[in-house]
Amino acid sequence: MEERLLTIKDLYVEYITDDARVFAVNGIDLAINKGETLGLVGETGAGKTTTALSIMRLLPEKVGLIKSGSIVLNGKDVTKASEADMRLLRGETVSMIFQDPMTSLNPVLTVGDQIAEVLELHKRHKNKADVEARVDEILKMVGLPPERKHDFPHQFSGGMKQRIVIAIALACEPLLLLADEPTTALDVTIQAQVLALMNELKQNLNTAMILITHDLGVVAQTCDRVAIMYAGEVIETGTVEQIFSGDEHHPYTVGLFESIPDLKKKTRRLHPIDGLMPDPTDLPTGCKFHTRCPHCMEICKTELPKPIEKDGHLIRCHLLEGGGRKAEGSETL
């Protein structure tokens, strides 16, 4: 039986600023087992990064607030943990790779120091020599020559910087890696290299990963399961096979796949989903997608659909109610 690593239940996150309340995450449920890769897919502003930052408890201070819900990581509820406990978890149990490697590294410290820091913070090694040896080892692991540890970030290319960021994230062999669009800022050939590297390391270290992306191709290549987010809600989750080839889908998922250009078909234009994501400060009632949904019914405008599950494939849509599937509570994932 696979072991559960992370369980997010009914998580609500808001950003409160002077002029608005932004409903960033609205009651999501997610679960991930040890060693598993979950793809978190959605448009910009769907709440993917906010979800990841909530797990790290690194939401912008005084602005981003976890309103309710629980995030149980390795048996510990991080929403209730003290700041000191969180510091022990960060970098050790859970670490994060950020979107832009160009700005993720401190320009005035050598990369070796930046890798060594996470080891020192978590007291992984008794003396300086052991730390240095481990730094060399990690650099080799991500495919960089160890003698470059004395160099500063500006002396590396984007792809190399992301390798260093990955090295920092994996230095303590965390149980969970949160990768927030790790390849978006890189060019395509480097993207493939970095993804391959992450996959390989993940496998070797048996690290679970939440891969945040809007690239469905990346998801197909790397993930075991997929969760599709829209306006702060998970509207469909399932295994990669269920999402990519299952016959029942949330209309938003259908739209996402239709907007990918098909090489075999001759079309003059792309097929985007009509309309824009709803304003997160003023979300519509009922199903959040009803304003853009081609199959919108009366009930969609007023009532939030319950998740409907079949073999672990979960869809939140009124269209499927009364069909072959039975509605269930949010307990099952």
């Binding site: 960060r90 993720s104 320009p107 820091e117």
Partner: peptide, 26 residues
């Protein structure tokens, strides 16, 4: 507000260390 400060926090660095080790020089 820079990304590398967030990286430092994500490593588990305490606020004091983040300021003195990572922020001041920059």
């Amino acid at each position: 507000r820079q990304d590398y400060i967030r990286t430092a926090k994500a490593k588990g660095a305490a606020p004091r260390r983040v300021i003195f080790h990572h922020a001041i020089k920059n």
